[in-house]
Design a protein around this nucleic acid. Structure first.
Length: 258
DNA sequence: CGTCTTTGACCAGCGC
DNA sequence: GCGCTGGTCAAAGACG
């Protein structure tokens, strides 16, 4: 489905394979040999059918959650999977799904020990976008900008504007490919973003394309690829927004699950 | 006038 | 102890 959209998602996946460093997080022997762990968070059948490509990483853990082949949106089952990971402290769970093309996968990271020792509500996303700031439904206030040594691009610091909410996010351009924005959420919101719950609970029919422009789900694109409801730019924008919403919602869901 | 961005200064952690 | 780096603070200005 992704390839039919003409956005080069498979190309993206090929261009951005899981970095070698991420595998250091996997159990000895690798995921293939650890099927028990892999199946720790089985999703509902078909839950990954419409996953969109993205990779999410927990910077502090040096771990990546990869969803190759197709971009990611945290549909219900997906969100639950990430929530489970977060409930375990940001790691300790593994999951791989072969979507039929043999390339799709998602992976958790970190050992159970690490999870216990390092509870984390930090989650990062890298998405391709021309705009730096992801509109995730929450209101952010910029409080800092810093040039970092590890990247030629400045890093921007944002804090949730809601009173009493200490969630922060960092936004920077990918040092290797400025087309991509790396957004890192730190903390969990103590409030809900307007429309977020409805957004995540909504079924993903293609016909819902115009339901909520700002938070419109990328999956609201005709799966056949023959429709003209969404331009590539539109798709990118939706993916971008959905990724941000997913990150925020995953963190929020994690908090609510404790 | 309230809110937000900008930006230089400051602080803390870390390695040497 | 010192320097480097990342993260935060806070004053000033811009904007609606």
């Amino acid at each position: 489905m992704a390839a039919s959209l003409g956005l080069g998602h498979d190309t993206y996946a090929a261009a951005y394979p899981p970095p070698a460093s991420s595998y250091s997080c996997f159990p000895p022997g690798g995921l293939a040999a650890d099927t028990g762990a892999v199946r720790e968070f089985p999703p509902a059948p078909g839950a990954f059918q419409d996953l969109l490509l993205l990779d999410a990483r927990a910077p502090d853990d040096d771990c990546y959650y990869h969803y190759s082949s197709a971009p990611v949106v945290f549909a219900a089952a997906e969100n639950e999977m990430m929530s489970s990971m977060l409930r375990r402290g940001g790691g300790g769970g593994y999951y791989v799904e072969d979507g039929g093309d043999g390339r799709r996968q998602a992976s958790g990271c970190g050992s159970a020990g690490n999870a216990a020792a390092r509870p984390s509500s930090r989650i990062g996303f890298r998405t391709r976008s021309e705009v730096d700031v992801l509109d995730d439904g929450f209101k952010w206030r910029k409080y800092g900008k810093k040039a970092v040594k590890s990247s030629p691009n400045p890093r921007n610091y944002y804090r949730c504007s809601a009173e009493g909410c200490g969630v922060k996010k960092r936004v920077e351009r990918d040092r290797d490919d400025p087309r991509y924005v790396v957004t890192t959420y730190d903390g969990v919101h103590n409030h809900a973003a307007p429309g977020t719950t409805a957004y995540l609970n909504a079924s993903p029919p293609c016909s819902s394309a115009s339901a909520a422009p700002l938070l419109a789900a990328p999956w609201s694109v005709p799966s056949s690829g023959s429709g003209a409801a969404c331009s590539d730019a539109d798709w990118e924008a939706r993916l971008h927004a959905a990724a941000a919403v997913a990150a925020a919602a995953a963190a929020h869901s994690s908090e609510l699950s404790y």
